[in-house]
C-alpha cells in the first residue's frame, strides 16, 4: 500500500533521512522506531507531501506522491505529532471541515462524522469547543480528523507523546481498530514498548539511516537469545577486553562487548544469570571492579543498543 524507495532528505550538510526504503502492507502497523532526531518526522513529512524529498520515491496506493500528489494525498490520513485543531470550532465542525477537504459531502459526510465521533468516544461532546477538552480528548479528536475520509493509508507521528497512560491505551485501541479494518498504518515512536505492542513490522532508524528492519519476531531473533548485561564500576580498558575475550575462548561463552568505558561495560551473552560469577571473576582478575549490575532480557531496546552502542532514550 505504501512504498518508500531510497528516500533522502538533506538540510544543507545534514542528511536527516539517509536512503530509507520500506514497504508497509494493508491491515498491518509498520513501526518507524528511533531516538529523538533520528529523522522519523522528516520521513513522515516527505511521505505526506509537507516536505519535498531531496531524492527517492514514495508511492501511496499506487500513486507517486511527487507526480500525482492529489491522488496520493486522497489515500493518506495524517495524525501529526503536534495537535492540529480549530480550538474555537466545535469538535463536530472540525471533523466536518476536514471531511469536506477530502471531498465528503452531504449525508455521507454526516454519517461518517457521527461514526468517527463514536469511534473516538466524543459523541456526547460533539458540540463543545476543543479548547474546553482535556489533553487526551484533544488527541483523540486529532486522530479523528485524520480518519474522517477513510484513508487506506495512515501516518501517525508519535501520537502518544505527552499523553497520560489511560488516553494512550485508548489511542492504541483506535490504532488496532483501524488495522482490523485493513488500514495500512505507519507509526513512529521512540518507545520500544509501543513498537512491540502495536507493530507487525519495524524499521529502526538512527541518524537518518535504517539500521534494522523486519518483524518484531525477526528482530528479536537477530539479537538471538542473548541477554544484555550492563555493569557499572571500574574497567581498565585493555585488560577488561582481554579478560572477556579469554572468557569466551575458555568457557566457550557466547559473549561480546557492545560498549566499554572506564566506568561502564555493556556485554551480551546467553543465559547471563548463570555466567555472572565467571564474568565478575574475570573482571576482578583484570584489575576491574563491579559496583552495579543490571540484566535485561532481549527486546528491541537491547537490539538498538547492540546495533548502535547507545541507549534509545538518553
Amino acid at each position: 500500500m505504501l512504498s518508500v524507495e531510497n528516500l533522502v532528505k538533506q538540510y544543507g550538510e545534514l542528511v536527516a533521512v539517509d536512503d530509507v526504503s520500506f514497504e508497509a502492507a494493508e491491515g498491518a502497523v509498520f513501526g518507524l522506531l528511533g531516538p529523538n532526531g533520528a529523522g522519523k518526522s522528516t520521513a513522515i513529512n516527505c511521505i505526506s507531501g509537507l516536505l519535498q524529498p531531496t531524492s527517492g520515491r514514495v508511492t501511496v496506493a499506487g500513486y507517486n506522491v511527487q507526480k500525482e500528489p492529489r491522488q496520493a494525498k486522497r489515500s493518506l490520513g495524517v495524525v501529526p505529532q503536534e495537535l492540529a485543531l480549530y480550538e474555537d470550532l466545535p469538535a463536530v465542525d472540525n471533523l466536518r471541515y476536514w471531511g469536506r477537504a477530502y471531498g465528503l459531502r452531504g449525508s455521507e459526510l454526516e454519517t461518517r462524522v457521527t461514526e468517527v465521533l463514536g469511534t473516538i468516544g466524543l459523541g456526547d461532546r460533539a458540540k463543545d469547543l476543543p479548547k474546553t477538552f482535556s489533553g487526551g480528548m484533544k488527541r483523540r479528536l486529532n486522530f479523528g480528523c485524520g480518519i474522517v475520509h477513510r484513508p487506506p493509508v495512515m501516518l501517525l507521528d508519535e501520537p502518544t507523546v505527552g499523553v497520560d497512560p489511560q488516553s494512550r491505551e485508548r489511542l492504541f485501541e483506535l490504532v488496532e481498530a483501524e488495522r482490523a479494518k485493513g488500514t495500512c498504518i505507519v507509526y513512529t515512536t521512540h518507545y520500544m514498548q509501543e513498537a512491540e505492542r502495536l507493530c507487525d513490522s519495524v524499521a529502526i532508524i538512527d541518524h537518518g539511516k535504517m539500521i534494522a528492519r523486519g518483524s518484531v519476531a525477526e528482530l528479536r531473533a537477530q539479537l538471538g537469545a542473548r541477554d544484555v548485561l550492563q555493569l557499572n564500576g571500574r574497567f581498565p580498558a585493555g585488560p577488561s577486553k582481554e579478560a572477556v575475550g579469554a572468557l569466551a575462548a575458555q568457557n566457550g561463552l557466547d559473549i561480546e562487548i557492545i560498549s566499554q568505558e572506564e566506568s561502564s561495560l555493556t556485554l551480551t551473552l546467553s543465559s547471563a544469570s548463570q555466567h555472572l560469577p565467571a564474568v565478575f571473576q574475570a573482571i576482578s582478575n583484570a584489575g576491574g571492579k563491579v559496583s552495579e549490575t543490571s540484566l535485561r532480557s532481549p527486546n528491541l531496546e537491547t537490539l538498538f543498543l547492540l546495533l548502535t552502542g547507545k541507549e534509545l532514550r538518553e
Binding site: 509537507l50 500528489p69 492529489r70 494525498k73 493518506l76 476536514w98 477537504a101
Partner: peptide, 14 residues
C-alpha cells in the same frame, strides 16, 4: 500555530 495549515497541506489540492 494551531497546526491546521499543515492539515491543509495534507489534503488534496484545497
Amino acid at each position: 500555530e494551531n497546526g491546521t495549515l499543515r492539515r491543509l497541506v495534507y489534503a488534496p489540492g484545497q
